[in-house]
Design a protein around this nucleic acid. Structure first.
Lengths: 228, 228
DNA sequence: TCAGAAGCTGACCAAATGGTCATGGCATAT
DNA sequence: ATATGCCATGACCATTTGGTCAGCTTCTGA
């Protein structure tokens, strides 16, 4: 269920997080959204420790107390953002079967991962910062849920290889290759923009990158570009 | 010259950084090394803002004052680490010519980049954290020196493509692909270990990864695996 | 032997940190 | 009107931050 665990200490009471029956005031929803967006940006930029509630509050246009009022604590806010990002991440971990077409599956895989990086660059960077810092909050998720998912996907890839539909490459390394090469365009955006001399990536840039990665990776694994 | 520029403010006097003629005391050298190593780790874990001099001092086994005494300021220490990392990085940006063998060049490229991630994981993560935070200190380097290097390499790749030695893929995207897929094993080490269930990557693991990346990327670009 | 420099560090500082709380505003239901 | 509950926030707190400095020890050269 994508449960994020804190490395120590138990959760404090969080007034804003207790489901509020329903019919949340619009003001509340609006403010919560503003805080979450601001926090995602600030945490992504500075990491968990480097981020300050003051900076988040400023960016959300609210007093610091208000942020605490809604989110309870810095840690709670951070965990909530991580969980939101893990949900997005999980949403594209769809199921596949040995009967599917390798080319189609891998292309969809690359494309949806690329879209995730593009649609939620701040969230992607937040995730990256968390891993970079040793994944103190996500360790359990990584070695649990996510690991299982990777293993099951790897089994399918291996079966494909045995049926001669692709080269017998290490399927886990292949997954890492796809993750890293797509994630790169969110996490290292500053580098990409600096080197290419742009000030942002357009939709067509992203399309081109997706096509490039699909082409090179599929060919590199000996997958014919489309089923007949 | 790999000069790192601060985003604002001018450098303060740094007693420890002024070249000390030569014959630096062994104590000094030892302490400086301890501080640099500790700082690299702490900055990599928590980012620039999240890192505290106290944490660095503790890890180096020295009082906080001593860290300031050697390094002058937090900013100075950080810049120095970035410069050291950029030097290592530059060391593997060797020259190539259109006459070289594509397979050899790309394999060496992948291998040396992989070695960098392996030999200096903390430095790699420090670099990643800097880029993640928008590259406030490295922007100039990225859009200057590094950009030039990329462009010159790209020209060679294009020429190879025209001679039919490789597919006509976008050379810049190819460079990004190699950077991201190798960098991944330093920056996302926590994820890689969590998913594979190991507690560290052995030399043979690294060798296997290098072989995998070389194989897939070369084949993916239509480069025959070795010159005759 | 001794003066001066270099190495080192505890005490201290203003500023910023995450978090608490008493209070005030403002709707709706009585 | 008046009471009730949520919304909102300024004032405040202990702790930690990066950085300074006076004064200590240790080394070096004459």
């Amino acid at each position: 269920m994508t449960e994020v665990n804190a490395p120590s200490g138990q959760g404090a009471k969080e007034p804003g997080a207790k489901e509020k029956s329903e019919a949340n005031g619009m003001i509340r929803q609006h403010n919560e959204q503003a805080i979450l967006a601001a926090a995602e940006r600030v945490f992504a930029l500075y990491g968990y420790r480097g981020a300050s509630l003051q900076a988040i509050a400023d960016r959300a246009g609210l007093p610091k107390s208000n942020v605490l009022y809604y989110m309870g604590s810095k840690r709670g806010l951070y965990v909530r953002l991580l969980e939101r990002m893990m949900e997005r991440w999980n949403a594209l971990l769809d199921d596949i079967s040995v009967e599917d077409d390798p080319a189609e599956v891998l292309e969809a895989f690359i494309r949806s991962k690329m879209q995730l990086s593009r649609r939620h660059p701040e969230g992607s960077r937040l995730f990256a910062a968390e891993i970079l810092g040793g994944a103190p909050f996500l360790q359990e998720y990584l070695s649990g849920e996510l690991r299982d998912w990777v293993q099951s996907r790897a089994a399918v890839f291996r079966e494909w290889a045995e049926r001669g539909l692709m080269d017998p490459v290490d399927p886990i390394l292949l997954i890492f290759l796809i993750w890293s090469s797509t994630q790169h365009y969110a996490d290292f955006e500053a580098q990409v923009l600096g080197i290419t001399g742009r000030d942002e990536l357009s939709d067509s840039d992203v399309e081109e990158i997706t096509a490039f990665l699909t082409r090179v990776i599929l060919k590199g694994c000996g997958i014919r570009p489309r089923h007949a």
